[in-house]
Write a protein that binds this DNA or RNA. Structure first.
Lengths: 202, 202, 202, 202
DNA sequence: TATGAATGAGCGTTCATTCAT
DNA sequence: TATGAATGAACGCTCATTCAT
């Protein structure tokens, strides 16, 4: 009873080429930033033809999304849905790496925000998937078995998660804003969480 | 009582040219949407040369911002800082026109979000000014003389305003998201306000 | 009486693949025209890999030539070298199907003209062979046993054949010319033949 | 009574740029042939931006047509409609420069044949215009005041002109044909003219 | 102010053909 | 034979912005 073992070589070659493209792009981005990335550099660095690039990615943005989503996913990998933060501070700290990745450049944050929502066209795209994953973690955190102290328990976890996301986005935007330049995204988010996600001091 | 009669011709010609440019752009936008607007079309429609456009606007975005901010400002004009909404419903309803203007197109919302914050460069720009104006109204609403029922009173009005803004942005984003396609931006915002801005149900 | 039973499978498989390619191409050409034919479509339709195509045809043009030559040859099959047309009208009528095939598309006529002559490289190719075959028929017609009335007899049949060919080509070109749009290729050719291939009026 | 004297500078600058592009292309073509011409080289040689090229020519072919037509026109400039050739030899000799220009390269002849006829879309294009001009000269030659000896006089000059054109085209094609490689285009055309355009030796 | 030709850097595309497996 | 990923060299295009006049 031998199962079908097809497509061994070809697939791996494809995968290798794609990996080469991504690795090259990753290196370039690390060196010069996302905004400076040029398709030409990528294919030259990867030693492949331009046509090959567009056989792997529909356009440059698709590569960009992948690179950015990879960083966001790396941040999300370090979050344990079962290990809920026990304070606003801990919550914000847990999101620090995510924030760092998403706000690395104005260019990056713009793309994240533009692609954060699943568009009406079929495919969510890697960035939307990463954010959906974040949503999932947050819901788990806020909705553990016996409710979710120390956060407010009068709201469904989904709502708390959406609230965090909205506040997180705004806090990140503020990083590029001169009027709140003194406050870091983390501090700002901390303030939001304290205000809106904790039980009111009444 | 002698009025200044110098340079009225020139000034009015300048003003007329600018008005013609804006009117043409407005008409084109109404017909084909913001994303499709081309400087070429505008100058042709206005019957002036391309260079003239850039004598009136530093760049295309400046025109775009003007057109969009005009719509937002029209919405804000109908808000009375002294006439606070007495319920989440009323609050959301009051923002309806603003939401409509800002979510007319994905392109518009993107520009609004990108320009919502005052950038490090000096000038806020008309969109940032419109949003600052919204902030002001919200602060007034939430912080009137005797506190701000029915909304929660345990938070400073500035914080409530920032919260509304974050939640409003997210609610608007969701308009372009297939996964929440059923809920309108208004309904979504209503849920957010109910959850985060009302006194918790002890 | 033992028949050779070796390699019938392989050969027939090869033949079947080639037939499938040609049939697919033929169908596509009938549907969308020659100019729109893409190798990609052909191999997909035939259910084989791209490389397989080039194992059967040296290049795309070879397939094109085959398809076109097939149509020209079908027209030539209906010509009887022994049955000479007895008038310019009959001559032109006899060539009607050939003309139709060669002028199906601008693309086709261009290829026919480019391949009509035997190029310096060895192989004539199917189109050049078809035209050579046409030449042969014409020579026979013009040079039959007892001379060739009603056509002029003061020129060698080869020269008459070459003349017909030149005039035929030009008449076909005119099909794609707006300035002579009213006259059909056949009518134009008829005029040419009347003028140049008949005995002059005294 | 001064007439409108507008557009003095701008137009001349445009003209200068275009001339620079054409001169550069001409030089490159003379050096390396038409088939080797690259848009990139042209713009670099002319010292202009790529966008400028496409502001002057809709595509590369448009430039090619211009270059080729220029050569054909130069050949036609040397023909005097009033100075008819007095023999087939003289006729062929008169066309020698034209033939040389049109058969400089296979690439050139292909383009000439493809663009020789006025296409159904509006603009004739410079090559079609050059050939129309040739037609005009031929008609004049064949249709002078008292008929046109030594050529046959039993046919309208337009028909003779069309015949020459068809035979000329075929003779030129033969230049790239191995089977008639020994005979030059001129010799071949001479044979055609002798056969079809002279009064029959009856 | 007004003009409009020129800029310019890079993206996306094309698609027949090759070649290692 | 068959596979199909990879090639590759231009081309065409975009379109906001600049600048000499």
């Amino acid at each position: 009873m031998i199962k079908d073992r097809r497509q061994p070589k070809t697939q791996s070659r494809t995968l290798r080429t794609r990996a080469k493209l991504i690795a090259t792009a990753e290196a370039l981005v690390t060196a010069d930033g996302f905004a400076a990335l040029r398709v030409e550099q990528v294919v030259q660095g990867a030693g492949v033809a331009k046509g090959t690039f567009f056989a792997h990615f529909p356009d440059k943005d698709a590569l960009m999304e992948r690179l950015i989503a990879a960083r966001l996913d790396a941040a999300l990998d370090r979050l344990d849905p079962a290990q809920r933060p026990e304070s606003p501070d801990a919550l914000v700290e847990a999101l620090a790496l995510f924030i760092k990745g998403a706000t690395a450049e104005r260019y990056v944050l713009d793309l994240v925000m533009r692609r954060a929502m699943v568009p009406p066209r079929a495919d969510p795209g890697p960035i939307a998937r990463a954010l959906a994953r974040l949503d999932g973690v947050l819901v788990q955190w806020f909705g553990g078995f016996f409710g979710a102290p120390p956060f407010r328990t009068d709201l469904p976890p989904e709502m708390l998660a959406e609230g965090v996301r909205a506040l997180l986005m705004q806090a990140m935007e503020l990083k590029f804003c001169s009027r709140h330049g003194n406050t870091s995204a983390k501090a700002r988010l901390k303030g939001y969480v304290d205000a809106f996600l904790m039980p009111p001091n009444a």
